[in-house]
Amino acid sequence: MPERKIRVLVAKPGLDGHDRGAKVVARALRDAGMEVIYTGLRQTPEMIVESALQEDVDVVGLSILSGAHMALLPIIAQRLKEADMEHVLIVAGGIIPDEDIEKLKEAGIDAVFNPGTPTQEIVDFITSHVTLD
């Protein structure tokens, strides 16, 4: 039986509409053989958790460029945990200063990818951290 594919939700929390990075990453993950669901823009933490549950994903990828990451990303990690999705890998990307990255990791974000990250690095991180049942 062929191994099932890694399922990834790519989401844009917050209000900013800069979706270039989210789309490029979504496409790179798809080209790397993953199943990718892209939520579109302006997703509240509730909407993102709901989609993650419904789509039964292994990974949630969050793209945010407005600067509201400290307010929104920890809430999403918290809500995913509350929804029994602790096993889900949470990765984030955007304009995120170094000093915030540590705090986000403490808040349950597994990795933060800065501008300039090769898409292969994101693919590798996901494939090495997700174990398919």
């Binding site: 209000l15 407005s66 600067g67 990451h69 400290m70 307010a71 929104l72």
Partner: peptide, 8 residues
């Protein structure tokens, strides 16, 4: 507007 005030 949560978390977005004055950011950009």
């Amino acid at each position: 507007a949560l978390g977005e005030f004055g950011k950009c």
